[in-house]
């Protein structure tokens, strides 16, 4: 293992930002794994730190393929993490909306450019991703449909679902999208939590990434058996909105199979405690996303169900 500084940025009042990468093996650039780019992506950083541990062990046992190099970058934006901010503290910009970056541009464009130059050239890229809404996910793998990456490759993770997302304009400045434009087969792995550690979900994500690496011939690793992944189009999932606002109580679990009409959640008036709405699923399927904040506004996507 080699621990290297991939990119540095001076600050007027803090110690220099040094983005650390861990390299394993040597030869062909096979896989880059990237964790936290936002300051609250603690679970994403944790999964990467677990990958560093797992790869150290595999390397010491000689189980990394002869011609394979793996890069793990647990945390790009620890500056925000250390002060409790999600985005870049100075201007509230999101590094993951700045790719491919620009070396003469604004600060977060320069950070994106600096790290992207080190993330490029790998055959595969995995980002530990978080979602822009508060919520919990069934661990799954997702890719953007740019026409470059074969969705069938997602089956090698052995997660229950592989979701294909049609990119929207605001996705075109993300790492995942730009990786594919620069010919890296890119995937986002969702490990349930964001600003807290979910060890069980992290175990599942680590095993999924090791399984992927084993299936792709990058390492030799024994992992628990995975699922036969179902590949689905994101447009085929059902988003369920809250029709009322108030205190939100989820009454279903992530991963649960539900039938049309089942109650998934209830909303109560926050002042007088009256039940104001029951959230029922209009389709049968598997719950893969649930909102998890106690307060909910109307028209909030509170569940997603894979039909």
């Amino acid at each position: 293992m080699k621990k290297k500084i991939l990119f540095s940025l001076k600050s007027p009042y803090r110690e220099q930002l040094d983005v650390i990468g861990f390299r394993f093996g040597h030869g062909r650039k096979s896989l880059a794994i990237v964790g936290a780019m936002r300051g609250n992506e603690v679970q994403q950083m944790y999964v990467c730190s677990r990958m560093v541990q797992a790869l150290k062990k595999l390397e010491s046992e000689g189980k990394i393929a002869d011609d394979a190099e793996i890069l793990v970058v647990p945390c790009v934006n620890y500056y925000s993490m250390n002060i409790g901010k999600r985005f870049w503290a100075m201007d509230n910009t999101d590094i993951n909306r700045m790719f491919p970056g620009y070396d003469l541009g604004e600060t977060t464009q320069r950070i994106a450019d600096g790290v992207f130059s080190k993330f490029q050239g790998y055959e595969y890229g995995i980002q530990l991703a978080s979602f822009y809404q508060p919520g919990i996910f069934l661990p799954h793998v997702k890719m953007m449909d740019t026409g470059f990456t074969d969705p069938e490759i997602m089956k090698d993770f052995g997660l229950e679902f592989g979701i294909v997302r049609k990119p929207r304009p605001y996705d075109t400045t993300t790492l995942n999208y730009n990786w594919q434009i620069w010919e890296t087969k890119a995937f986002s792995v969702y490990a349930n939590a964001t600003d807290e550690i979910d060890v069980k979900a992290a175990d599942e994500a680590v095993n999924a990434i090791l399984r992927f690496m084993d299936n792709r011939g990058i390492v030799t690793s024994k992992t628990p058996p995975g699922y036969i992944t179902e590949i689905i189009d994101e447009d085929m999932t059902k988003q369920i909105q809250s029709e009322a606002a108030g205190l939100f109580f989820r009454v279903t679990e992530i991963g649960k199979t539900v039938e049309h009409g089942d109650v998934l959640g209830r909303i109560y008036d926050p002042l007088d405690g009256e039940l104001v709405a029951e959230i029922r699923t209009p389709v049968s399927g598997t719950v893969y996303f649930a909102y998890n904040s106690p307060l909910i506004n109307a028209k909030t996507v509170c569940f997603k169900v894979i039909k």
Binding site: L247, P270, L295, A298
Partner: peptide, 9 residues
């Protein structure tokens, strides 16, 4: 759109 506690946006 109603917000969580006694207010609308």
């Amino acid at each position: 759109i109603p917000l969580a506690v006694h207010e609308s946006l």
